[in-house]
Design a protein around this nucleic acid. Structure first.
Lengths: 154, 154
DNA sequence: AATATTAGTTCAGTCATTTAACTATATGTA
DNA sequence: TACATATAGTTAAATGACTGAACTAATATT
């Protein structure tokens, strides 16, 4: 592939991924209630999806330091959306779970997001979505491999 | 489409877009020199691509407040990477341009990113990349329309 | 000339993050 | 068993990126 061709694709990709991310974040922000930031919504979502969730799991999944997790979950706990529960067998460990209010808020938010995405999906053929996701997932795998590869070089 | 089918696609999309963004940012971070953050790199890139760039243009393009632009460009100016030049006809306006060092640093960074992306692209057929970008751009257009549509409702 | 608009800045506050140092607990080994 | 090491999580200080409101200075409008 010529250099110009590559540069062109890079420009296209960077521009489009910027807009998709930015607009995606803005659209999500419009759906979620003012007490949550997008990050906080993702965190609630993750905690709910795990059966028993710990800070370390969030740290690993989100690729952020454990100290960042502490401050994030402090904010959520401060709002009464999650609860810490000390593990009885290993007292270093705290299990995180949504409070009643947290569950209610998450469910409400999930419904709104679901509606939003459904509206978006009607604009595409099912086949096109699946093809797109296939390539997107392949890209994701390559990114992860490259990142791990780099790590090993060090 | 059934509800479960939609939910499945949402989960797939959210998971994959999270990883692609996160890993993409980390890979870029590894390429750029320590004096720049990713945001700062994007800003330099944008200023370079415009012929004459103003704070307002950055604010519009990046969908951030002008006060955010001021502090961002203050940081870049503080590092000697960009310069402000007052417009002689309209003295409210300041044109932004890269300094010599800024240009050098950007060029160096662009080369590294170019190499990185080229390595990634070899893993795909050209056709697959183009198809992917087509759908991605379509998605981007839809997001922008929805966002604008919302704005008009208010 | 008076009023409104525009470009950009300042300030106070918030969120998300990093790094380094720390506490408390658990595990492994000699 | 006791000492060393590893692990889970917290604290504290710092930075970057952002918002919103109030502001200055310059330009446009009426």
């Amino acid at each position: 592939m010529t250099n110009e061709k590559v540069s062109g694709l890079i420009d296209r990709y960077m521009k489009v991924s910027f807009y998709v991310n930015k607009m995606g974040e803005l659209l999500i922000k419009d759906q979620i209630c003012d007490v949550l930031t997008n990050e906080q919504y993702y965190t609630l979502r993750f905690i709910e999806q795990q059966r028993l969730c710990t800070s370390t799991e969030i740290s690993d999944a989100f690729y952020i330091n454990k100290s960042a997790v502490t401050s994030n979950i402090n904010r959520l706990e401060g709002k009464g959306l999650i609860e810490r529960e000390q593990d009885l067998d290993d007292r270093r460990v705290f299990h995180l779970k949504l409070s009643k209010e947290g569950e209610g808020l998450l469910q409400e938010t999930e419904n709104k997001i679901h509606n939003l995405v459904e509206r978006i999906m009607t604009k595409f053929e099912y086949e096109e979505i699946v093809k797109f996701l296939d390539t997107y997932e392949k890209l994701s795998q390559i990114f992860i491999q490259m990142k791990n590869g780099e790590q090993e070089e060090i």
